[in-house]
């Protein structure tokens, strides 16, 4: 499975990066690919490419604030949650994404 994600939090400091890191680690453990764009105090980093989004089986937006470019994910199976949801249970988030991706592909 291939996933893409955007992480963003109010201060753009800790939770953004914790969520990004949590998603990457959990995806790796599950054998999935995960690209994470962070929208933080330093702006947008690791910006998702059109190809990455197009190839993704599902999208997760781990965001506590409005983000830039949400229209890029129109039509993709998208899970919108808070950064704390990732921090609390990244494994569960990946499981849910896997299910969404499987349904979309089936």
């Amino acid at each position: 499975m291939k996933f893409v994600a955007v992480a963003a939090c109010p201060a753009g400091l800790m939770h953004t990066f914790m969520a990004a890191s949590g998603l990457k680690k959990a995806a790796k453990k599950a054998g999935a690919t995960m690209h994470v764009e962070t929208q933080s105090a330093s702006g947008i980093e690791d910006q998702l490419t059109a190809a990455q989004i197009s190839e993704a089986d599902a999208v997760v937006l781990a965001i506590d604030v409005n983000i830039e470019g949400i229209e890029r994910f129109a039509g993709k199976p998208t899970l919108t949650i808070g950064t704390n949801d990732v921090l609390a249970n990244a494994k569960g988030v990946i499981a849910q994404l896997t299910e969404m991706g499987a349904q979309a592909n089936g």
Binding site: A11, L13, M14, H15, T16, F17, M18, A19, A20, S21, G22, K25, T38, S40, A41, S42, L87, A90
Partner: peptide
């Protein structure tokens, strides 16, 4: 506890990102 001024230098953001990444482990 982490306090940062209104404008944060990239070097500091990288440090915060590093700590944040550590805590996700």
């Amino acid at each position: 506890m982490i306090l940062t001024p209104a404008a944060v230098a990239d070097t500091h953001l990288k440090l915060l990102a590093m700590i944040a990444g550590q805590l996700a482990d």
